[in-house]
Deep mutational scan, measured.
Amino acid sequence: NCLEGLIFVITGVLESIERDEAKSLIERYGGKVTGNVSKKTNYLVMGRDSGQSKSDKAAALGTKIIDEDGLLNLI
């Protein structure tokens, strides 16, 4: 459970895995996936064609922004 207690938001199109697979992977390792960035969000996983508003909010809140490889490296 290397992601225990961590909260993730996924945005954009992921290249190597589907969004549902990424969500399942995060949950399997103890993390939680939500739909919107908040002060409780630990990581924003940004894929291709992701919206600017979520990354702006993450930056404003100090949320770590990672890509798909960054997510896989956490596991």
Results as ranks from 00 to 15, higher is better:
1 N>D: 07
61 L>G: 07
49 D>Q: 12
2 C>I: 07
57 K>H: 10
70 G>V: 04
19 R>P: 11
72 L>A: 04
72 L>G: 04
70 G>Q: 10
55 S>W: 13
9 V>W: 00
41 T>N: 00
23 K>S: 06
22 A>D: 00
44 L>S: 01
23 K>P: 02
8 F>N: 05
3 L>M: 05
25 L>F: 04
26 I>R: 01
62 G>Q: 04
75 I>A: 01
38 S>Y: 04
75 I>F: 08
46 M>L: 13
57 K>T: 13
20 D>N: 13
17 I>H: 11
50 S>F: 14
69 D>N: 13
30 G>V: 11
27 E>L: 07
16 S>R: 13
6 L>V: 05
75 I>R: 02
66 I>N: 01
59 A>I: 14
5 G>D: 05
2 C>T: 07
48 R>M: 06
46 M>D: 04
39 K>C: 07
40 K>E: 14
24 S>I: 12
3 L>E: 03
21 E>L: 06
4 E>P: 00
19 R>K: 11
26 I>M: 00
12 G>A: 00
75 I>G: 02
57 K>D: 11
31 G>N: 00
58 A>G: 07
53 S>H: 14
9 V>N: 04
52 Q>S: 14
1 N>Q: 08
29 Y>E: 05
17 I>D: 04
9 V>Y: 02
24 S>P: 02
35 G>F: 08
14 L>Q: 04
59 A>W: 07
31 G>Y: 00
31 G>P: 00
19 R>S: 09
2 C>M: 10
72 L>V: 06
4 E>M: 01
6 L>P: 00
62 G>M: 02
17 I>W: 11
39 K>T: 11
64 K>P: 10
8 F>I: 02
64 K>G: 04
69 D>K: 12
64 K>C: 07
8 F>Y: 00
31 G>Q: 00
39 K>I: 12
60 A>E: 11
35 G>T: 15
11 T>P: 07
65 I>N: 03
69 D>V: 13
36 N>F: 06
1 N>R: 09
25 L>V: 05
41 T>L: 04
15 E>D: 15
6 L>Y: 06
60 A>I: 07
41 T>D: 02
69 D>Y: 11
18 E>W: 00
36 N>L: 10
21 E>Q: 10
8 F>P: 03
9 V>M: 04
72 L>F: 14
44 L>Q: 02
8 F>V: 01
63 T>D: 00
19 R>I: 12
63 T>M: 06
9 V>S: 12
20 D>K: 12
74 L>P: 02
50 S>C: 10
53 S>R: 14
63 T>A: 10
24 S>K: 14
29 Y>L: 11
21 E>K: 13
61 L>V: 08
40 K>C: 08
7 I>Y: 12
52 Q>H: 10
1 N>Y: 06
49 D>E: 11
13 V>M: 13
40 K>H: 10
38 S>G: 08
13 V>D: 15
73 N>F: 04
70 G>W: 03
67 D>G: 07
45 V>E: 00
16 S>V: 08
34 T>M: 12
48 R>G: 05
59 A>F: 13
28 R>V: 04
35 G>P: 14
62 G>T: 03
27 E>H: 08
50 S>G: 15
12 G>Q: 00
34 T>W: 05
65 I>A: 04
62 G>N: 08
12 G>F: 00
17 I>C: 11
53 S>V: 12
70 G>M: 06
29 Y>Q: 07
3 L>K: 04
3 L>S: 00
24 S>T: 12
14 L>C: 05
62 G>D: 07
37 V>L: 14
6 L>A: 07
15 E>I: 07
49 D>Y: 11
1 N>A: 07
75 I>V: 07
12 G>D: 08
25 L>R: 04
46 M>S: 07
27 E>A: 06
18 E>I: 00
35 G>Y: 10
16 S>M: 09
38 S>R: 02
23 K>H: 07
51 G>Q: 15
45 V>Q: 00
73 N>Y: 06
55 S>K: 15
23 K>V: 14
18 E>L: 01
74 L>G: 03
20 D>T: 12
72 L>Y: 12
70 G>C: 05
6 L>M: 13
64 K>V: 06
44 L>W: 07
49 D>F: 09
20 D>W: 08
52 Q>V: 11
26 I>H: 00
4 E>L: 01
75 I>S: 00
17 I>V: 09
46 M>N: 04
58 A>F: 06
28 R>F: 08
19 R>T: 12
17 I>S: 07
14 L>W: 05
43 Y>N: 02
30 G>D: 00
19 R>G: 12
36 N>E: 14
37 V>D: 01
37 V>T: 02
22 A>C: 13
74 L>W: 02
60 A>C: 11
21 E>Y: 08
53 S>C: 11
22 A>P: 02
47 G>A: 08
55 S>H: 14
64 K>F: 01
71 L>W: 01
12 G>M: 04
21 E>I: 04
53 S>K: 14
41 T>R: 00
3 L>C: 03
34 T>F: 07
25 L>H: 00
22 A>F: 05
68 E>W: 14
69 D>W: 11
52 Q>T: 12
74 L>S: 01
75 I>W: 02
22 A>I: 15
37 V>G: 01
16 S>N: 13
39 K>E: 14
48 R>Q: 06
71 L>M: 06
27 E>W: 03
15 E>R: 10
41 T>P: 02
58 A>N: 04
59 A>S: 09
39 K>Q: 10
55 S>E: 10
40 K>V: 08
37 V>R: 00
8 F>S: 02
49 D>N: 13
20 D>P: 10
62 G>R: 05
45 V>I: 09
5 G>W: 02
51 G>V: 13
11 T>Y: 07
57 K>R: 12
19 R>F: 10
70 G>E: 10
68 E>Q: 11
24 S>D: 11
34 T>S: 13
72 L>M: 12
51 G>A: 15
63 T>N: 01
44 L>Y: 04
